[in-house]
Amino acid sequence: MSLLTVNDLKVHYPIRGGFFRRVVDHVRAVDGISFELQPGETYGLVGESGCGKTTSGRAIIGLNKSTGGEMLFEGKDLAKMGRAERYKHTKDIQMIFQDPYSSLNGRKNVLNIIAEPLRNFERLSPKEELLRVQELVARVGLSPESIYKYPHQFSGGQRQRIGIARALALNPKLIIADEPVSALDVSVQAQVLNFMQEIQKDFNLTYLFISHDLGIIQHMCDRIGIMYRGRFVEEGTADEIYNNPQHVYTKRLIAAIPEMNPEKRFEKMHLRQSINEEYQTGYNNYFDKDGRMFDLKKISESHSVAMQ
């Protein structure tokens, strides 16, 4: 059974206007996306900025209200749960935030930051709590005495690891990683990503990995969903998406990855030009008359594309 099944998830925001601030239209931030997460896998959500990746992630964890569709976590719909019932699942779904500078409260030291979820869900004596936090801090590769320091005394990568330790404190099943490394510099990115893969094995975690960086997604994810304007454009395994992209948007996205080898520069340029031509001529195959994507159609067991 899949861990999380998202069916036709919609997050619409009303646009108010007119004399009585009536709802005149909606911003369709997320407009009917569906995907499944199998236990232990990493699912990547990719897309340009503003395409609704973060909104989907936040809807799943409950920071945004979804306006339609269902999110089945272990068979139960998170969207229809009351507050008390939703609270029970807080332990199972955790989030790693994008910005390690604002996601840690600067007035609290590391001990209090990491102990926060433990204090909410587990009754531990101060000594037990201290040992648990020490263990978590050591697990994310920080020195044990750093628990008395404050967030501003750490570098960006270290802060992100504190955020990861906090998310791990409750032994969650699913972690939503919302661009966890986009605020870090490249040398630290690899470090944090490899570390995330390590703990995935240790804790048997499922990741919903949200990013706009195709290289990172390729490195991290088993399956990938490409998003554009709140809808899925293409979904498949990492291999299928990178080696056999079907939708023109995916092709353009992958062609935009910089080429390391200078000798292949012209080859790459021609590829981009041919894709651009395909985009100009074949536009109607990929987008309907309102510029909206078609529904996903299966072209193989794991690969589906939004084409006519």
């Binding site: 807080t90 955790q94 989030m95 994008q98 996601s103 409260n105 609290k108 926060e116 909410n120 906090r166």
Partner: peptide, 23 residues
């Protein structure tokens, strides 16, 4: 985000207000 983080960690609203936001 630290307020959002507290929400996802299951901290009750009054605690977030007076122990996270207030400091």
């Amino acid at each position: 985000d630290y307020i959002n983080a507290s929400k996802t960690l299951g901290t009750p609203s009054w605690k977030i207000m007076f122990f996270e936001m207030f400091p």
